[in-house]
């Protein structure tokens, strides 16, 4: 089974400098942080959709299809029910759905979808080694950069190991669907313990393997291929900065927000 989320494709997005790739991810979060009107979030969401197509990364969207569908739907339902609760002075437990509650819920759903899309895009076009290089370029110490990049690489591995443990416990009759929410949570204990122990063992083994191959021995490492900024990176960076400036300015002036302060 494929563990890495990186997809080896020859697209323009894959050829971008690692720091520009990281900037796309950061820009998505920075632009949408204070924005909640669906019409304002939609252009970013659409742009990310186009970038995913351009990067030929839809395979990773399909891989996490459940997350791409369930997270925005759950968010939409929750916000359309609870938006405004505790602020309108209503004593009702559930605030009545109103026009702005629906709009806010739609905005939040789109925002979460955009964050997921930006993360999927970043991991699809960025190798672990480039991620480390990008963080190093921002001045982060090498060991910390490598550890953060490795953590991303290990997430799918962790998920795979969790699925294996779930299957092993199901084979012993464990039924996750019985009982109330607390009983169900308690039933995850036979999954959490083996997954946690397995992760500790793996971390231990990986640390030994890294040290045995000289990890961090030299204060200055060499690089077989060092990424260099190309004109396309300058254009991409300019576009990213423009989008962030426009969105931050709009948010600061109350545009793109449902309630002005």
């Amino acid at each position: 089974m494929r563990i890495n989320l990186y997809l080896d494709r020859a697209t323009l997005l894959h050829r971008l400098h690692p720091q520009v790739k990281l900037a796309i991810l950061a820009a998505t979060f920075a632009s949408l942080y204070a924005i909640d009107r669906p019409s304002a979030v939609a252009p970013v969401a659409a742009a990310l959709g186009a970038l995913l197509v351009g990067a030929r990364a839809l395979a990773n969207v399909r891989r996490f299809a459940l997350m791409f569908v369930a997270v925005p739907i759950a968010s939409f339902i929750m916000w359309s029910l609870f938006y405004g609760y505790g602020q309108s002075g209503s004593a009702a437990f559930v605030a009545r759905p109103r026009h702005d509650a629906i709009a806010y819920a739609a905005g939040m759903a789109l925002k979460l979808e955009s964050f997921l899309a930006a993360s999927a895009l970043f991991l699809s076009i960025t190798r672990v080694e480039e991620f480390t290089e990008a963080l190093r370029g921002l001045g982060m110490p090498y060991r910390m950069s490598f550890t953060i990049a490795m953590a991303f690489r290990l997430v799918p591995l962790f998920l795979t190991s969790s699925l294996s443990v779930v299957a092993a416990q199901r084979a012993r009759g464990l039924d996750f669907s019985r009982g109330n929410v607390f009983a169900r949570l308690a039933r995850y204990m036979p999954v959490i313990v083996p997954v946690f122990m397995g992760a500790l063992r793996r971390a231990d083994a990986m640390a030994m393997a890294l040290e045995a191959r000289g990890f961090g021995r030299e204060s200055e490492r060499t690089k077989f291929v060092r990424s260099r900024f190309a004109p396309r990176d300058v254009v991409a960076a300019a576009l990213i900065v423009s989008v962030v400036v426009v969105y931050v300015w709009a948010a600061a002036h109350g545009y793109g927000r449902i309630r002005r302060r």
Binding site: S164, V165, R172, I192, P194, G198
Partner: peptide
């Protein structure tokens, strides 16, 4: 079904 790795189930 007994899985290959006993550590996948022991808790």
């Amino acid at each position: 079904y007994v899985f290959q790795n006993p550590d996948d189930q022991i808790f």
